[in-house]
């Protein structure tokens, strides 16, 4: 404890927060950023069965994932001051148990781990 206090003291006396920055010549910069973990389960509104192959994207960043065979997806994304704009799209059309309507969602950031349950309606053709 005493040494951590000394660390702050000497750090401030050398006028540099950079004294705490880590990096070895051949290493990556230390990662001090924060991020959010989003996971979810996508099922069909009518059959309640999981849907595979749904493209889950964040629209203000080029980031996406596809639901697996159990309809699940998960990813980390950067923390924002605003809600996270997401879109769920059936990009493989009828291949996976039907054609589903695109759904858009603004996800509120109330914790650094968010779980979503999404029901997608089938498109009438």
């Amino acid at each position: 404890m005493k040494r951590k206090w000394k660390r702050a003291l000497f750090g401030s006396l050398i006028f540099s927060s950079a004294a705490f920055v880590f990096q070895a010549c051949y290493g990556a910069p230390g990662d001090f950023g924060y991020d959010v973990f989003i996971e979810g389960h996508v099922i069909s509104k009518s059959s309640k069965k999981p849907i595979r192959g749904i493209k889950v994207s964040i629209t203000d960043e080029d980031q996406y994932a596809f639901t697996d065979v159990d309809g699940r997806f998960s990813f980390y994304t950067y923390e924002r001051k605003i809600n996270i704009p997401m879109i769920f799209q059936d990009v493989d059309s009828v291949e996976n148990s039907g054609l589903f309507e695109t759904q858009q969602l603004d996800v509120e950031l109330d914790s650094n781990k968010i779980s979503l349950n999404i029901e997608m309606g089938e498109e009438n053709r």
């Binding site: 040494r3 951590k4 000394k6 660390r7 006396l13 050398i14 004294a19 290493g27 230390g30």
Partner: peptide, 18 residues
Amino acid sequence: FFFRKFKENETQLHELNY
């Protein structure tokens, strides 16, 4: 001088950061 003290203290702390 203070940077040397800082380094000595870090060496004693021996905290794994990386």
